[in-house]
Design a protein around this nucleic acid. Structure first.
Length: 434
RNA sequence: CGGGGAGUGGCGCAGCCUGGUAGCGCAUCUGCUUUGGGAGCAGAGGGUCGCAGGUUCGAAUCCUGUCUCCCCGACCA
């Protein structure tokens, strides 16, 4: 993409409404614009990040055996009356009538809907186990939206729902999602801490929250520092033993930690950090299958309500969360795999024919090699281009200047470390396409 | 929902107390000079001051109402 014809409205100054660093940077870097309290438009660069995260989440869900579908955002009140949650949910649910005065709502979650869909199709133990998921916009009319996309009212969520014949099956489905979550967050370059969660109103007895560590997080966590010793490689290859190891280590949210009389973690290993909740998994048994009349026939000819679980990841929240966890004074530092473009190609002198020709050729070669490249071909001074590139945080900057071109070299800069290296055009290309 | 703060060109702000034809920085446009870390000079465009009502000869400014946004607390991906 040529920056001269892209839509990237960056700001030098921070809008007064933004308080936390991720919100400030998302506005400044032209990722989002606010349109109402807790509601955001995703600009081109922000959308690319959102899609990248979504894709990592999707790949790991698929790998875990979950099957993607897509349910609507608008649901009917009658559906929610079947589970009794229409009255129970409260003002966080946005309700409105359609033209025929039917009571509708903008879905805050999809347990009821997926349960009826599955109920009407699955009749036999042969139809189990299944885990279905979708990545879809939710609306929760938060009392107090804040911190940009971290606590928006409209947000993109991956929600998965598992159906199993018995509790043993549910445990397996739950673990499969647990593994998928560990891998997902590791792939996103995040250190995630699974915290055993009080199950709250959704019910059930098995539930974990996944928090990513960031100083501006809304939750206070206490955990065994041994959790930090688990390497990214191990998390990327997570399996049931990883879960056993992780869940064997102490990790609590402040409130729960406060109730603990004798903390088993020695003081020197007890970490107190802040976290952002980006995932939450529940096993809640037959709560919805019973309420919604989901029944399957067993091999022996009996009838059972399937055991269910639900598994959420806040996809749009992750955009803010990743920035909270990865930025510096100059702007965002995107982890590889999440960045909106892999390479920012800077032509230092748009008016220098040799320089422009070299940059044009590099751009064509990078594109030809399938490297996502944002090419700053604008007629701006170098300083402005550096500042913009640092702000938007692409992992690699490839700098083409007239002095270097005379000597046949370009400069490759790693955003995360600031390391720079002079390379011939060929070896720079080889590095970025390799 | 309780408490606090704020609405003035795209962004950041001043002006309001003490009414008198709306100003600064950044950004934008034009020209010239510049060109490896957000350039300089000269010129230009852009705002019925959130909205409605009132007071007044006259309202961004005073009064009333209303809407919106932000922050702190209780809840959540």
């Amino acid at each position: 993409m040529r920056l001269s014809s892209y839509f990237l409205p960056v700001m030098k100054e921070t809008p007064a409404d933004a308080q936390i660093v991720s919100h400030k940077l998302m506005l400044r870097a032209g990722l989002v614009r606010q349109t109402a309290a807790g509601i955001y438009a995703w600009l081109p660069l922000g959308l690319r990040v959102l899609r990248k995260i979504e894709q990592v989440v999707r790949e790991e869900q698929d790998k875990a055996g979950a099957i993607e579908l897509l349910m609507p955002t608008i649901q009917s009140a009658d559906l929610w009356r079947q589970s009794g949650r229409y009255d129970a949910y409260g003002p966080e649910m946005l309700r409105f009538p359609d033209r025929h005065a039917r009571e509708m709502l903008f879905g805050p979650t999809n347990e009821e809907m997926i349960t009826t869909i599955f109920r009407d199709a699955a009749k036999s133990y042969r139809d189990l186990p299944r885990t279905l998921y979708h990545i879809q916009w939710k609306f929760r009319d938060e009392v107090r939206p804040r911190f940009g996309v971290m606590r928006g009212r409209e947000f993109l969520m991956k929600d998965a729902y598992s159906f199993d014949l018995d509790e043993e099956g549910l445990r397996r489905s739950y673990e499969a999602m647990f593994v998928a979550y560990l891998r997902t967050f590791a792939r996103l370059g995040l250190q995630a801490v699974p915290v055993r969660a009080p199950t709250g109103p959704i019910g059930g007895d098995l539930s974990h929250e996944f928090h990513i560590l960031a100083d501006t997080g809304e939750s206070a966590l206490f955990y065994d520092s041994a959790i930090e010793d688990i390497s990214r490689e191990e998390l990327l290859a997570a399996d049931a033993s990883t879960i056993a190891r992780l869940t064997g280590l102490y990790a609590m949210e402040e409130e729960e930690h406060g109730k603990v009389k004798d903390c088993p973690v020695p003081a020197e290993r007890l970490r107190s950090r802040r976290g952002i909740e980006v995932g939450h998994i529940f096993a809640f048994g037959t709560k919805y299958s019973a309420a919604m009349g989901l029944i399957v026939q067993t091999k022996e000819g009996g009838q059972v309500h399937p055991q269910m679980g639900s598994y959420g990841i806040g996809v749009s929240r992750l955009v803010g969360g990743i920035i909270e966890a990865s930025h510096d004074e100059n702007g965002i530092v995107w982890p590889d795999g999440v960045a909106p473009f892999e390479v920012g190609l800077i032509n230092m002198r748009a008016d220098d024919p040799a320089c422009a020709a070299a940059a044009d050729r590099l751009y064509a070669d990078l594109r030809g090699a399938g490297v996502e490249t944002l090419y700053d071909d604008r007629d701006e001074r170098g300083g402005a281009k550096f500042a913009t590139m640092d702000l938007i945080g692409l992992p690699w900057q490839l700098i083409v200047g007239p002095k270097g071109i005379e000597r046949g070299v370009v400069e490759l800069k790693r955003r995360a470390t600031g390391e720079r290296e002079e390379l011939s055009l060929e070896s720079a290309l080889a590095r970025l396409t390799g």
